[in-house]
Design a protein around this nucleic acid. Structure first.
Lengths: 140, 140
DNA sequence: CTAAATGCAAATCATTTGCAAAGAG
DNA sequence: CTCTTTGCAAATGATTTGCATTTAG
């Protein structure tokens, strides 16, 4: 029963485990992209029933609990990913393509920055804006 | 005439220099916080006339040109800062307070990450989520 | 049983857009 | 003069909310 792991996860964070929360978590665990709320609803609704407002409410709850990470790539809608899939991103400013990467070496450096400021790091969001090497640069 | 610098800046980026663009740039250059579009409009409108839609259009243009940096702190509205004030941020998840910092050592590390992925870094956004040291942690 | 979660539809809020008038180069 | 920018008001689109109903613990 794959649901047990997710149920435990919710309980560990003091959240009730509902059918709908399971659906949303499963969608995010199965997604390799970064779906927005409407897309998560679309995927979760396949064969099931769930309202969009419920998806929004669940995403807000799960984000607050840290089970889900909310991202913004500047296209007007928030995107989400499961913490288990958490990683950083590089956005190709020409094509809009998103490249994921995971640079473990950054964690300690960033932690020390927070510490120096008198804080304990909880999480961080890093987004690189870049263009493919060799791209023609318009200096007109 | 302080307007000359801004005029040059616009011209260098192929943008027409208008009274309204000057107003928005001046507001951002004078702001130490991270005003959202509506707040920028409010500040620019003091003693002048400018419509909100114009502020939005200008911010989009200036962002695309790289004269202004668009940020998202997760409260539903985009925030802006002048490139000349560009820096990274730490968000105190308890109070919502934003602490600015500038860690020069990060730049080369992040550039190398982009390079490794086959890209040339244009810019990056780093946001730390943290809690004050010594804050009581609720492990209920 | 009781507090929390959900559906539905209406409400909000930020941001965008169509079109005619005003302005920059 | 020609192309771009701006105003205004209406349109869009994402996200939120009130309230009655259902469900988890």
């Amino acid at each position: 029963m794959p649901g047990h792991r997710l149920e435990q996860l919710c309980h560990d964070h003091g959240l009730r485990f509902t059918e709908h929360r399971r659906m949303v978590l499963e969608v995010l665990d199965a997604s390799t992209d970064h779906p927005a709320a409407s897309e998560i609803h679309r995927r979760a609704a396949v064969g099931h029933s769930i309202s969009v407002s419920t998806v929004y409410r669940i995403l807000k709850t799960l984000s607050a609990a840290g089970l889900v990470v909310r991202r913004d790539f500047g296209d007007g809608k928030a995107r989400y990913e499961s913490v288990t899939r958490r990683h950083d991103h590089l956005v190709d400013v020409r094509s809009g393509a998103i490249v994921e990467f995971d640079e473990a070496a950054l964690q300690p450096i960033i932690e020390s920055i927070a510490a120096r400021l008198g804080y304990r790091l909880i999480d961080y969001r890093l987004e690189l804006l870049a263009e493919a090497r060799g791209a023609v640069i318009d200096r007109s």
